[in-house]
Deep mutational scan, measured.
Amino acid sequence: MAAAAAAGAGPEMVRGQVFDVGPRYTNLSYIGEGAYGMVCSAYDNVNKVRVAIKKISPFEHQTYCQRTLREIKILLRFRHENIIGINDIIRAPTIEQMKDVYIVQDLMETDLYKLLKTQHLSNDHICYFLYQILRGLKYIHSANVLHRDLKPSNLLLNTTCDLKICDFGLARVADPDHDHTGFLTEYVATRWYRAPEIMLNSKGYTKSIDIWSVGCILAEMLSNRPIFPGKHYLDQLNHILGILGSPSQEDLNCIINLKARNYLLSLPHKNKVPWNRLFPNADSKALDLLDKMLTFNPHKRIEVEQALAHPYLEQYYDPSDEPIAEAPFKFDMELDDLPKEKLKELIFEETARFQPGYRS
């Protein structure tokens, strides 16, 4: 834990890192770190609560700039109880001085990944967590956004079992017609939660990839272990087919990539493993919904509104309290091709509203 900075004593240090967030945020305490930044909790002297502050230093890398800009653009436009918001952003007053960006968010005690390492969940908890994931996802999908990296560590939890989806750095506007060349190379989302079509096709992607990830998360809540822990690309596919069985001819016809289709045709026939054999203690309604989410063919996979209306979630289902976005989200430009200098300018502009004396 960093010592509390005395008023006016300059930035606090946390594990050798400068955290320049005073005077409003003090009493910093280390939480963890990701690929390009550290997260601390801090005391907000204005709202009198502890908050989470993520320090991001992305400006050396085009990919990190892209992810940072995506996350900020999306989260500043989203407003939903099951999606983490941005409360404040701290950065230098000029673009030349801006080396880091500090993002202030609600402090959540833990995440689903940490929880599943230590606790076996009751059916009631599984049901409530799944409902909140789908409630947040309904809003995301209504904005025409794909999260693309749903996994237990991106689901934040607090002691009252509130759940918030975080990390929109890989999110995209849904565009089933656009052929994202190089899709697989830039697709760094965790393999275990990846839909089979991501490994088999490169053309376009749809909201059904997020539903697949939610199915993987439900299976993990039922058993405290990942359902498809593939060691590499082909191993991942083999794990999936080992449980779902061989795809039907109709399902194979959806695979545009001939090499991928021929690979699947070359494999020995596998039978589907019954879900109640894998999860003998699970609620039968939970397994019915799991089956509809972990469907090989993305066109037959359940959609988020149908999933919310499934009998497993009937005690929570309330369409009048499951809000959607006001308007579909649009990125003005494809960020993939922009140089990091341009992305830095866009991050600077996007964060201006939090600067003292800002006038829109």
Rank of each mutant, 00 (worst) to 15 (best):
K164C: 08
L241C: 11
A7G: 09
T94H: 09
R225Q: 12
E109Q: 07
D175R: 06
N271P: 14
M13H: 07
D318P: 15
V21F: 04
G215I: 03
A35S: 01
E12I: 06
Y25H: 08
I84D: 06
K114I: 00
R67W: 05
N123P: 12
D177A: 00
K344V: 10
L116G: 11
L308K: 12
Y263H: 13
Y316S: 15
F228P: 09
G34V: 00
P93H: 13
A195W: 04
L222Y: 07
E220D: 01
M98F: 08
I53H: 12
T94Q: 11
D179N: 02
F183H: 10
D149S: 09
Q119W: 12
N47W: 06
V18R: 14
I165M: 09
I31E: 15
R148N: 04
I198R: 03
A5P: 14
Q97P: 07
S320M: 10
R261C: 06
N123G: 08
Q249R: 06
K340M: 00
V14A: 04
S284D: 12
P280Q: 07
H141M: 09
S153V: 04
K300C: 08
R15Q: 05
T206N: 04
A189T: 01
Y233I: 01
P23T: 03
V188T: 07
K48Y: 07
S142Q: 11
F329T: 13
A2T: 02
L155M: 01
R353T: 11
V14E: 06
L28Y: 10
L155A: 08
D175N: 03
Q105Y: 07
L290W: 04
F279R: 05
F183R: 08
D179L: 07
Y233N: 00
Y187V: 04
G204R: 01
G37A: 03
F228D: 09
H147S: 04
G22N: 13
L150V: 12
F331P: 15
T63D: 07
P229E: 04
N144T: 02
K270S: 12
D124G: 11
L137D: 02
M98R: 12
L121N: 09
F348Q: 09
V14F: 02
I324L: 04
C254G: 11
D44N: 01
R135S: 02
W212R: 00
L241I: 07
D44A: 07
G357T: 15
I217P: 02
V273K: 14
L112Y: 06
G85Y: 14
K99E: 03
A219D: 03
G136M: 07
P311V: 13
L163P: 03
R148S: 02
H269W: 07
K272I: 00
M13F: 15
N144E: 04
P23A: 12
D318V: 02
T110V: 08
N276Y: 01
W275M: 02
K330C: 13
G8L: 06
T26C: 06
T185S: 00
D251F: 08
Y358C: 01
M38N: 08
N257T: 01
F228G: 08
K270F: 11
C216R: 02
L294G: 04
A195R: 02
R225L: 01
G8I: 13
M98V: 15
G10W: 00
G32M: 05
G357Y: 15
S223N: 09
A9R: 06
I255S: 07
K151S: 08
C40I: 15
D235I: 04
L335D: 12
L267M: 00
I31T: 15
E303P: 15
D162F: 11
V39I: 05
G10C: 07
K272E: 07
Y64I: 04
M98G: 13
W212C: 00
V39N: 05
C40Q: 08
D124W: 12
R261W: 03
I90N: 01
S208Q: 13
P311N: 14
S320K: 10
K54G: 03
D124S: 09
I347Q: 03
E33M: 15
L218V: 09
S202V: 06
L163K: 09
L313G: 03
Q355D: 10
P58Q: 14
P274I: 13
L308H: 11
E12V: 02
Y36F: 01
A6V: 07
A325V: 09
H299G: 12
E303Y: 14
D100R: 13
A143D: 01
R79N: 14
D283V: 02
S284N: 12
A189W: 03
Y205S: 01
K292A: 12
K48I: 08
Y316N: 00
T160P: 06
L121S: 05
N154Q: 02
S248P: 04
T190C: 07
N253I: 00
Y131D: 13
V273L: 04
D20E: 00
Q66A: 06
K138C: 11
L163V: 13
N27E: 13
V101M: 00
G182H: 04
D210P: 05
V51L: 13
P11C: 03
V104L: 06
D106P: 15
D106N: 03
F78N: 05
D100V: 01
N87S: 13
M108Q: 12
S41H: 13
T351W: 14
D100G: 13
G37D: 03
K117Q: 06
P196T: 00
N87P: 12
Y131G: 15
S360D: 08
I95L: 05
L200R: 03
L244H: 09
L265E: 09
S122H: 11
L75R: 07
L184I: 03
A325R: 10
T68V: 07
F354H: 05
H120C: 11
R148F: 02
N271S: 10
D175F: 09
W192M: 01
R135C: 02
P280E: 07
Y43E: 13
T110D: 07
L346R: 14
K164G: 04
G215L: 02
V39H: 03
A35P: 02
H178A: 07
Y30P: 12
I227P: 10
N144I: 00
Q315K: 02
H61P: 05
D235G: 09
H180L: 00
I95K: 12
W275I: 06
Q132P: 02
R15V: 12
T118G: 09
D149I: 06
E197V: 01
R261I: 06
T26P: 05
K272D: 11
R79Y: 13
G32H: 05
D336F: 15
R77M: 13
V14S: 11
G215H: 01
D106M: 15
N82K: 05
I209V: 05
K73Y: 05
A4Y: 15
N144Q: 03
L184N: 02
K203G: 07
R148W: 03
M38S: 07
M293V: 10
L28C: 10
G230H: 13
Y43K: 14
S360H: 06
C127P: 11
H61K: 12
E33N: 14
I126A: 11
N297W: 08
D337I: 07
Q236L: 01
L290H: 03
S57Q: 14
L335G: 05
G215A: 01
F296R: 02
T206D: 10
T351C: 12
L278K: 13
L258Q: 00
I83T: 14
K231N: 01
Y187L: 04
K300S: 09
G357M: 06
E334W: 15
M13L: 00
A9F: 15
F329C: 12
K117W: 10
I74L: 07
I103Q: 06
I256L: 06
I126H: 08
A195Q: 03
P23S: 10
Y36I: 05
H180R: 09
K117H: 11
I56Y: 05
D337T: 11
G204Q: 07
L237V: 14
S213Q: 04
V14Q: 11
I84E: 05
D283F: 09
A174T: 01
H147L: 00
I83N: 05
D337N: 01
K292M: 00
Q105W: 10
E305W: 14
I198C: 04
L335I: 07
Q355K: 00
W212G: 01
V46E: 12
Q306M: 14
D251L: 03
K48G: 03
Q132A: 05
G22A: 08
K259Y: 04
S284I: 13
L218K: 03
L278H: 13
P176S: 02
L343W: 14
D235F: 03
L134A: 05
T160R: 05
I211Q: 05
R191G: 03
K203C: 03
N144K: 02
I140Y: 08
A352H: 15
H125Y: 04
T63L: 08
A92M: 15
D321Q: 12
D291A: 06
I217N: 00
R191C: 03
K54T: 03
K270D: 10
E305S: 14
D167G: 04
I89P: 12
E326P: 14
L234R: 09
K151T: 02
P176G: 06
V21S: 04
L156S: 04
E314R: 15
I103L: 10
Y102R: 06
A352F: 15
G85L: 14
F348R: 10
I86G: 15
S213I: 02
A282T: 05
A9H: 13
A52M: 00
Y128G: 11
D179E: 02
L107I: 09
I31A: 15
